[in-house]
Design a protein around this nucleic acid. Structure first.
Length: 344
DNA sequence: AATCCGGGGTT
DNA sequence: AACCCAGGATT
C-alpha cells in the first residue's frame, strides 16, 4: 500500500477536527472512546464540552458519576463513559495522573482495547502501533481483495497484519488517521469515489470492479422486539418526576422512568401499577405508546401516567426536577417518553 | 464465536 | 427500512 500517497492526500484533505489540534494523550483517549461506533460529527460537541468540564484524568477521576453521565447523555453506549472514568481513576492511582506510554499498561485500562490503545500510542507519541476500525477494514478489504466475511477470525487476523505492515515507518499516527479518513471520505460504504482515491492504482476491488461487493459483511440476526410498560409519576404540580437508576440493566447508569418488560399479554394498567409498586401506589391511566429503535432492539413502550400518586423516594428511585434533567444522565428513550406526556 | 450495548445520520 | 459508524466487555 502506497504510504506516501496516503500521507500526501491526508495532508491536503484531512478534516479540521478538535482532537487533531492536540497531542495530549488524555484528550486523544477521550476522543477515541467517544468515536467508538459513533460518527465524528456527532462527537465534536460532546468532546468539547467533556474536555472543558474534565480537562485532565484527575478532574475526571474525582467527578461524581452522575456528572460524567450527564455529559455523555445522548451519545449512547453509556458503559463507555463509566469505563473511561474508571480508567481515569486507574491512571491517577497507578500512573501519577499521566496516561501510560507503555502499550501493555494502556491495554489494561478498562474500555481500552487494541484499537484505542493503538490510536493513543500512534497519535500522541508516534509509536508504530496499528489500528483497525470499520473504516480500515473496508479500505483493506477492497484494496487487497479480502473476501472472507468481516468478523471471522481469519479476516480479523489478516486486517491486523496489514495494519502492522502499514504503520511501520515515519508518521504512524498520521498514517493511521489517513486510512480512517480515506474510509470515511472516499472509500465510503456505498458509492466510493475511486476517481479521487490516492491509492486507487493498487486497489484489487477497483481493478476487478468489485467495490460494491466488498467488504463481505458479517451476517447479523434480526433485532429482538421487546414490549415495555413504563410509568410516569409526577409530583409538585408536574415539576418533578420519579426516576430510577439501574446499573446493570439496559441504559445502565442512566436514570429512567420505572419500567418493566411485558411478556405475552398486551400491556395493561396492571403492568403500570407493578412498575410503580416499589415506590408506592397511585391511580394508573394509560396514555400512549412510544417506539424506540436500537441496533439490537425494537422497543414498544406503553406509557402510563400515575395520578394522585403516593409514590415516594427510596434507595432505588428519586424525584428529579424536570429543569434539572440535564444534570444527570438520561437516555434518549426517556426524553421521548416524557415528551409523549407533554412533560418536555 | 456470539451477544450485548445507543443513538443517529445516510442512502 | 437497511446500513453502519475512529469498539470493547462479557458469556
Amino acid at each position: 500500500m502506497d504510504r506516501d500517497a496516503l500521507l500526501r492526500w491526508y495532508d491536503e484533505h484531512k478534516r479540521d477536527l478538535p482532537w487533531r489540534r492536540t497531542r495530549d494523550p488524555y484528550a486523544i483517549w477521550v476522543s477515541e472512546i467517544m468515536c467508538q461506533q459513533t460518527r465524528v460529527e456527532t462527537v465534536i460537541p460532546y468532546y468539547e464540552k467533556f474536555l472543558s468540564r474534565f480537562p485532565t484524568p484527575a478532574a475526571l477521576a474525582s467527578a461524581p458519576e452522575d456528572d460524567v453521565m450527564a455529559m455523555w447523555s445522548g451519545l449512547g453506549y453509556y458503559r463507555r463513559a463509566r469505563l473511561l472514568q474508571k480508567g481515569a481513576r486507574e491512571v491517577v492511582a497507578s500512573y501519577g495522573g499521566q496516561v501510560p506510554r507503555d502499550r501493555d499498561a494502556r491495554l489494561k485500562l478498562p474500555g481500552v482495547g487494541r484499537y484505542t490503545a493503538g490510536a493513543i500510542g500512534s497519535i500522541a507519541w508516534s509509536e508504530e502501533e496499528p489500528v483497525v476500525d470499520g473504516n480500515v477494514m473496508r479500505v483493506f478489504a477492497r484494496h487487497f481483495g479480502i473476501d472472507s466475511p468481516l468478523g471471522a477470525k481469519e479476516t480479523d487476523a489478516r486486517m491486523w497484519r496489514e495494519a502492522e505492515a502499514l504503520v511501520r515507518g515515519p508518521r504512524p499516527g498520521d498514517l493511521n488517521q489517513s486510512i480512517m479518513e480515506l474510509g470515511a471520505r472516499v472509500c465510503r460504504p456505498r458509492s466510493p469515489t475511486c476517481l479521487v482515491c490516492p491509492i486507487a492504482h493498487g486497489c484489487v476491488a477497483k481493478a476487478e470492479g468489485r467495490q460494491a461487493q466488498l467488504p463481505v459483511p458479517k451476517v447479523k440476526k434480526a433485532p429482538r422486539r421487546v414490549t415495555l410498560a413504563t410509568v410516569v409519576a409526577t409530583r409538585d404540580k408536574r415539576r418533578e418526576i420519579l426516576l430510577v437508576k439501574q446499573e446493570r440493566a439496559l441504559f445502565g447508569g442512566l436514570y429512567m422512568t420505572p419500567a418493566l418488560e411485558v411478556k405475552g399479554a398486551a400491556p395493561s394498567e396492571a403492568h403500570g401499577r407493578a412498575a410503580l409498586a416499589p415506590f408506592g401506589s397511585g391511580r394508573i391511566v394509560s396514555t400512549g405508546k412510544v417506539e424506540h429503535i436500537l441496533s439490537h432492539r425494537v422497543m414498544e413502550v406503553t406509557v402510563f401516567l400515575a395520578t394522585h400518586g403516593r409514590a415516594k423516594t427510596n434507595s432505588l428511585g428519586r424525584f428529579v426536577a424536570l429543569d434539572a434533567l440535564h444534570t444527570i444522565g438520561v437516555a434518549s428513550l426517556t426524553k421521548k417518553i416524557l415528551r409523549s406526556v407533554d412533560l418536555l
